[in-house]
Nucleic acid binder design. Structure first.
Lengths: 235, 235
DNA sequence: CCTCATTTGTACGTATGTATC
DNA sequence: TGATACATACGTACAAATGAG
């Protein structure tokens, strides 16, 4: 049932090793031939896993040389898609739940229309504030269809990335998406949460994220005060 | 010499057809089996081309059903990587060259350090202003290493996407990158180019883009006034 | 400069599983 | 239920780039 395909097992294992820092940036992964032996799979299987790591930004490949480790994605990875792990695995970054996941009805999500089956399923909605060194950096609102996510509330959104939870618990992975970016002035609510003065420039990000599960989208809206550091992402 | 691998030929042809609107959004591409027959290639070759189209956001795949065309990426595709074509193929979007490509020396690019071989090669630098319906929407600065780009100045940056030119003329494709986003207040120069009042919130984007050519990066800085429309991208 | 082993890139064929309609 | 379509997986072969000698 919940068995992962072999290429995903290899992917998850290598990804874990890289994220855990077992390879320094610039190191070479074992060659494809060696990986085949280690995991007892054929080369196309290993290559598929490596392709994933490339598109996730964990490695680069170079013909005749090998697979070069780029290291765990750095920064506040809100813009990186599958690499958002780093956002919450960073030791000095914490998450404060402003509004715990609750069930709502919905017809639209941050200006994106929701699809009929999503509307029927209802909406899981929650709000979080992310802090870096106890300073608020961004405030985000998330909407998910309430379908096929048993025991979702049990999973610890304070300490785990949403995308990690969806990927490892429910086999839901991001396949693409659409985003809108705005620079706006802080309103009252943002002034309070992000601790900025009135009219301070704020980055706003609306995203509709597609997944491998047909008709299942993640909708999110993020506000970020970028004074000082900027919002970093790999892609 | 300049022969493309078969999977890239299939990719380019299908991409061209989708971008040209030969398929409506929601249409199915021919099945993998049919594509094999059409292009006289094996199924793994077709699948590799389709994988590319998926990761570029042109199609979605669904097991048992087929490859669903999502249509040409819409909006100002500054954030989409390989799909930036749309930005300049849009009929009402035009490009004004503020500063024609010129050769410079460089040691850093928008806060990103440049690598030694790039520094030795020198820097191609240019500035462009993009207009939508004759209204300025964003202002961008680009830096490229001056190596392996014969006759670069001849190619028409006013009417073609930079990424398209690099991909089709020089076989340089984007493999990933890092970006920093900021919300800032407009300074004097931005007030002039983007026609906004002093202190208006502006979106700033610094990017270091990696390519399949080792040691060749594209550095760009983009400023955008997002009042009204927002900056849209697919990923 | 050339040779050679290593490593990744491209391509084909085949087989089987699983989702969709 | 069956036909179709995509997903996964293995094996093979050769090409092209890299780096060591």
């Amino acid at each position: 049932m919940g068995n992962l395909p072999q290429y995903k097992q290899v992917y998850e294992e290598l990804r874990r090793q890289i994220a855990a820092g077992l390879f320094a940036a610039g190191d070479l992964l074992p060659s494809e031939h060696e990986l085949c032996a280690q995991y007892s799979v054929a080369r196309p299987t290993v290559r598929k896993a490596l392709d994933q790591l490339v598109s996730d930004g964990f490695i680069q490949k170079q013909q005749g040389k090998g697979s070069i480790v780029k290291g765990a994605p750095k920064g506040i990875g809100i813009l990186s898609l599958t690499g958002t792990t780093s956002a919450l695995s960073s030791p000095n970054l914490s998450t404060h739940i402003i509004l715990r996941p609750e069930l709502r009805s919905w017809t639209e999500a941050f200006s994106f229309p929701v699809e009929p089956q999503e509307q029927r399923a209802g909406c899981i909605y929650f709000e979080r504030l992310r802090l870096l060194d106890d300073e608020p950096v961004f405030f985000d609102l998330t909407m998910l269809p309430n379908s096929g996510l048993p025991r979702f509330e049990e999973y610890d959104l304070e300490n785990r990335s949403l995308f990690d939870t969806l990927r490892t618990r429910y086999q839901i992975v991001v396949t693409g998406g659409t985003q809108q970016l705005f620079a706006i002035r802080a309103d009252k609510r943002l002034q309070e949460y992000l601790k900025v003065r009135a009219g301070h420039p704020i980055l706003q990000l609306n995203r509709k994220i597609e997944t491998n599960r047909p008709g299942f989208h993640i909708y999110s809206q993020v506000f970020c005060a970028t004074q000082g550091y900027g919002l970093i992402g790999t892609f």
